[in-house]
Structures are given as C-alpha cells and as structure tokens.
C-alpha cells in the first residue's frame, strides 16, 4: 500500500528530493525551465529569496501569445468578451520606435516592484508584498476602491467587473475586488515555474522568459541577468521591479 500524500515521512522525502533537485540547479525540463526550491509547508516566505523574471524581447514574437493563454488557463481569469472591462493579468504589448520604426513585442504583467505603489496606497493593506518579493492582493480585505489601479504605473491590475465562473482553487477571484499576476505563487511555492514561463519554453519553443531567485548567484536568472544588459520598465520611477527585460 502506498503512503498517502499527507504522510509526513512521504512529505519530508518529497521535500528532500525536490530540494536536492533544486540544489543541482541545472535540472532543465525545457529551455529555460528549471525546478525551483519548493517552500516547505507552513514555512513563511523568505526574504533571502527574490523571485524575479527576465524576459528576452529579442526572442518574443509579435503574433505569439502563448504566455497569455497559459496564464488565463492556469488562473482562470476568463472574461465576458467585453474588452474594456475584461481582466488582463498579462498582455502582449507591441511597440514601435517613433524614431527608427523598429518594432518589439513583449508581455507585460505585474512587475512585482520592490517598493510597489499599489501597496503604498491600499487603505486596508489588501495589496501586499511577500518577503520573497511577490506582490499579491488579499481578496478577503480588498474593498474594491481601485486606488491601487490608479497608482500602478504598469496598468497591471484589473478590477473584476462582473460575476466570476470557473474559478481555480489556487487562484481565488471575486467580483468587486482587484486582481493581477501572482507570479503563479501557488506553483512557485510548490517548486514549479510560472505557467507563462513554461508555455513560452514548451509551446512557443522560445524560452524568452526566465524565472528564478535573483538572490541566488547560481540561478539561471541571476546568470542571465549577469550576461545581458537588462532594463526595467519606467526604471526612472525607482521601483526596482522583479520583472526585467532584455532587448528593449
């Protein structure tokens, strides 16, 4: 008889296995997709970790939106075919340089700022940042005032304008509250990569998105960030976001 999933011996064995796998740090599942160290059940998020994403816009095709589709499927933020009010946790933005005419395409989502304006302005503290840098909305205390949406420089947040259906247990939503990209916190805590990163690597075959712990010098993202010139959107605001771009 196999051990039930809740068996502590099994859990600790699983953790040891996953931690060991993460320690190898080179377990590549697909281009750019490595295993992460899972957060132990019950343990608080650690400020030793800085979850971050590096997006290589030179690998990002204008017509491709696998990251958007994967995010929608993973987190269940379906809309009602009403463009103005439907939610967008992640979107593809097409850019054209006014001077040269050069074009770029890139995904934009919550930038998981180190000093997030949405957290500053939220009257109830529903907008909050975890110790490991992930910015989230506590749906239980969000009163739907939308001040965070006014404050966010990246238009990263959506207000839930109507009834929600098909919710995922790991991504609760609520009419009248605000929501945004969670960096797939449920996956990250379980040692998995965010859904967009996996889709970019596996479905788009690009690996334009790298996710990991920026504080870990051996992580793929730290190495990539060291190799490339990276930018942050509106770096002039000094928000030190967790989403970095290369190629802009």
């Amino acid at each position: 008889m196999s051990a039930p999933a809740s068996d502590p011996r099994f859990e600790s064995a699983r953790r040891r296995f996953l931690q060991g796998a993460a320690a190898l740090a080179a377990v590549t599942l697909a281009p750019g997709v490595t295993l992460l160290a899972p957060r132990a059940a019950g343990a608080a998020a650690s400020d030793k970790v800085r979850w971050a994403m590096l997006i290589d816009t030179t690998k990002c095709d204008a017509g491709c939106d696998h990251c958007v589709t994967a995010c929608r499927d993973e987190n269940g933020w379906t809309g009602h075919d009403r463009a103005r009010t439907d939610p967008h946790w992640i979107r593809k933005v097409d850019l054209r340089d006014r001077a040269t005419g050069a074009t770029h395409s890139l995904p934009v989502m919550c930038q998981h700022c180190e000093t997030p304006p949405c957290v500053d302005v939220c009257p109830t503290g529903a907008s909050f940042k975890r110790a490991d840098g992930i910015v989230l909305v506590d749906k239980h205390i969000c009163i739907g005032c939308r001040y965070c949406m006014m404050a966010c420089p990246y238009k990263a947040r959506s207000f839930v304008h109507e009834d929600v259906t098909g919710q995922k247990p790991h991504a609760p939503r609520g009419k009248g509250t605000v929501e945004s990209c969670t960096f797939c916190v449920h996956r990250v805590d379980a040692g998995q990569q965010p859904a967009c990163v996996v889709a970019c690597a596996e479905k788009a075959g690009q690996g334009a998105m790298v996710f990991g712990d920026l504080n870990d010098p051996n992580s793929e993202i730290a190495k990539a960030a060291g190799r490339h010139v990276t930018n942050r959107i509106r770096a002039d605001l000094g928000l030190n976001q967790g989403v970095l771009y290369h190629g802009l």
């Binding site: 979107r91 933005v93 850019l95 006014r98 420089p153 238009k155």
Partner: peptide
C-alpha cells in the same frame, strides 16, 4: 510605459 515608443495591446496600451 515606454517613452519614445508607440504602444498598442489588447488592453488599450
């Protein structure tokens, strides 16, 4: 978001 660029998206950038 991107000074110097013309931006467009399904989210009205």
């Amino acid at each position: 978001l991107f000074p110097g660029y013309e931006a467009s998206s399904s989210f009205f950038d």
